[in-house]
């Protein structure tokens, strides 16, 4: 009981601290404002973990139900080789291969149908429709077609990432205004020149939007596809077998790795976006 009370006290103290922090008038001090914007969510995150630890220990929740963070951390440090193997199998093979092929083919198809408004009008509603479908369900079929190894997982990822990319690229290519296009016409620009100098840069925010959506979709697709059959390695395989053995701390360790990989992947795409679309208002205004 003491630990639970400690958790509540800690939470209240941190809440008060955060309220004070956001109330600080930073004025024109850029550095100070940024530091506060970084510290406040950090404190909130730490608070969550501390409360988790204290409540689990205080209420003596069974570790099968929810292990405390310290136990999960211990498991991560103890089983790094296994985690690394699973990461290689699922992320470096299936997710990356599928992501590159899916996004690449979605982009290429969007470029191919660019000259045909007929195909665009047909494919856009269909693409939007398919994006709302539970595509993850094709996983068993892909496992049947491409076997148990990472190729079938990559195939699921390709299908999941293809449509968001297609729809976003087609919309992005239509984003350049008619003024700018007319200007390119008066320059007698070729299709290729119009593409590289005007339309692709204008489409970049849309394309990066798809890349960001796909970065999380790809990881989910690969892991879920592993539930339908895998060689004895991989994050999805580990999660499903360790759940069966009630080794919940190992499952949480895999989840931590997956979350970390997902966040880093997303962050990397977001960083590249910043570098490429530096001119876009949504990025300029944050400075």
């Amino acid at each position: 009981m003491m630990l639970v009370i400690a958790a509540i006290v800690f939470w209240l103290a941190m809440w008060w601290l955060n309220q004070r922090l956001v109330a600080i008038d930073t004025g024109t001090d850029q550095f100070k404002a940024r530091a506060i914007n970084l510290i406040v969510p950090l404190i909130f995150g730490i608070t969550l973990f501390v409360i988790w630890e204290l409540v689990v220990r205080g209420l003596e929740v069974s570790t099968v139900l929810l292990p405390p963070p310290s136990m999960i951390w211990e498991r991560i440090t103890n089983s790094l080789p296994i985690l690394w193997q699973d990461f290689q199998q699922t992320f470096l093979k299936a997710v990356l291969a599928g992501y590159i092929m899916g996004c690449g083919s979605g982009f290429l198809v969007a470029l191919l149908i660019d000259r045909s408004p007929f195909l665009q009008r047909g494919l856009l509603p269909l693409g939007n429709f398919v994006s709302a479908l539970p595509i993850i369900g094709v996983a068993p079929i892909m496992v049947m077609w491409f076997g148990f190894d990472w190729q079938s997982k990559a195939a699921v990822v390709v299908i999941m990432t293809f449509f968001p990319m297609l729809v976003n690229t087609v919309q992005g290519l239509a984003a350049a205004g008619s003024m700018e296009r007319d200007l390119m016409n008066t320059y007698a620009a070729t299709w290729w020149q119009k593409m590289t100098k005007l339309r692709l840069p204008a489409a970049a925010p849309f394309i990066f939007n798809a890349l960001k959506i796909n970065s999380t979709l790809a990881l989910i697709g690969a892991i879920v596809a592993e539930f339908f059959g895998t060689p004895i390695v991989g994050m999805g395989f580990r999660i499903s077998t360790e759940v069966g053995r009630m080794n919940v701390d190992m499952v949480w360790a895999e989840i931590a790795v997956a979350a970390l990989a997902g966040s880093l992947f997303y962050g990397l795409v977001a960083l590249i976006e910043r570098a490429v679309t530096f001119w876009h208002p949504s990025i300029r205004s944050s400075h």
């Binding site: 099968v64 993850i136 994050m235 919940v248 895999e254 997956a258």
Partner: peptide, 14 residues
Amino acid sequence: TIPILAIAPMIIVV
């Protein structure tokens, strides 16, 4: 960014 669908089986079983 946590692939929740991946944890789904654990949540259900637990």
